[in-house]
Simulated scan of single mutants.
Amino acid sequence: MLIGTFACQDINVRNVVVSMFLQENCPDIVITSLHQKNCTSQSTRNNSYYLNKTDCIPKCLPFPNENLTLDCNINPNICLPGYQCEKRCGSEEPLGQYSCNSDDDCINIPHSNCLDFCVLSTISAGVHCMAYHLNTPEFADNYFTAEKFKPECDDNGEWVAKQCKGGVNGRCMCYSATGVRLFGEALYSNAENMTCACSRRRNDLESSGRTMVTLHCDSMGNYEPLQCDTEKNICWCAESKTGKLTSPVVPEVAKIKLPCYNTSSVGSQYLRQCESKKFAQSQITTKLKTHGAKYIRTDSLLCDADGSYGAYSISSGMAYCVWRDNSKIENWYSNVDSDIGNLNCKNLRSSSRKNYKSFEVSQ
């Protein structure tokens, strides 16, 4: 067991019941610094391990080989990482896909009531990070990336920002805490200083409701030296891997005084082409709304985290694959409502071979 110290009262638990148990039954100091990564490293082809933090001393425990369907009505924390307590129709397996709010939702299923069960945890973007490490048939050999690749999870079961696959000849990419692919990637051999901190921060801000996030990330998802918040009209210098301030915060007009300002790479305007257009659209929309406009139609504009144009552009109900300067990639487009999910513009951009599953239209 790895050695370290932490106060029992500071253990990050998900439920007040577990927290009270720890405070009442654990000693003041517990000697351990065990993390989920340590447990994952013990996994074999037949057994995977998770970090159990519901006892006084955290430990690595194996996932059960059968699908977990425990009743979690009394204590939701009985669910293992990768599972969550949800209401489902049924009293035993199989629970199927029948979610419910009350017994009335289960009337078409014989001998079934709406009960609380531990079920595989899904999120809007895919599957809970720890679900890829379960010993269940659904995830034993997952197709998600490579044959033996499973995402690295933190101690809370969330995705680590930097995920690598393919070994020393592979690549590293940026992900959100819920498994959404973000801007930023690099060859494994060049990714030692890659943190994805900027891409993760941008995603967090956008997820919180910010419509115009102007942090600039480099190709690895790290912070560029000069950062500005255009909505607040402020700028500062940032450390690449963490984003920590390395200068005072100044008004945007004074950014040329910052030590990280570079005329050749920044110029007189911080916002880049895609961001400038998007910012202008947002300003016009805001003004029209203040003057009573109820319906304002503008083409959706998607910008990458470095300020360039995103992999596809949406206009008049159609989605087009585009290069970084917003020029269309010939013959690659789809209908937004029905087919955009199959338009693989990011892969098309990164490869000179147009052999990916998509909608290539003959002209």
Rank of each mutant, 00 (worst) to 15 (best):
Glu92Gln: 12
Val17Gly: 11
Val361His: 15
Trp236Cys: 07
Leu134Gln: 07
Ile296Thr: 08
Leu22Cys: 06
Lys354Thr: 14
Asn347Trp: 03
Lys257Ala: 06
Ile78Gly: 14
Pro81Glu: 00
Ala191Lys: 04
Gly292His: 04
Glu231Ile: 01
Ile78Ser: 15
Cys228Glu: 03
Ala125Met: 05
Gly292Leu: 05
Gln9Met: 11
Tyr295Arg: 02
Asp154His: 07
Gly341Met: 05
Lys277Thr: 07
Leu2Asp: 10
Asn15Asp: 15
Lys59Gln: 14
Cys303His: 06
Cys114Pro: 05
Ile296Gln: 06
Lys257Tyr: 02
Glu252Val: 13
Cys56Val: 03
Val13Ser: 10
Leu120Gly: 05
Met212Asp: 11
Ile329Ala: 07
Met130Leu: 05
Asn355Gln: 13
Lys294Thr: 15
Arg349Thr: 04
Ile314Arg: 08
Ile340Cys: 00
Leu226Ile: 00
Thr32Asp: 09
Ala293Glu: 09
Tyr83Thr: 06
Lys87Cys: 03
Ile74Lys: 12
Arg181Asn: 08
Asp71Val: 14
Thr5Cys: 11
Thr263Ser: 14
Val168Lys: 12
Lys162His: 01
Cys39Met: 02
Arg349Gly: 12
Cys303Tyr: 05
Met20Ser: 13
Gly4Phe: 07
Asn169Ile: 02
Thr230Cys: 07
Met220Ala: 10
Glu66Leu: 08
Ser334Ile: 03
Gly126Phe: 10
Tyr98Leu: 13
Asn233Asp: 09
Asn335Gly: 02
Asp337Leu: 06
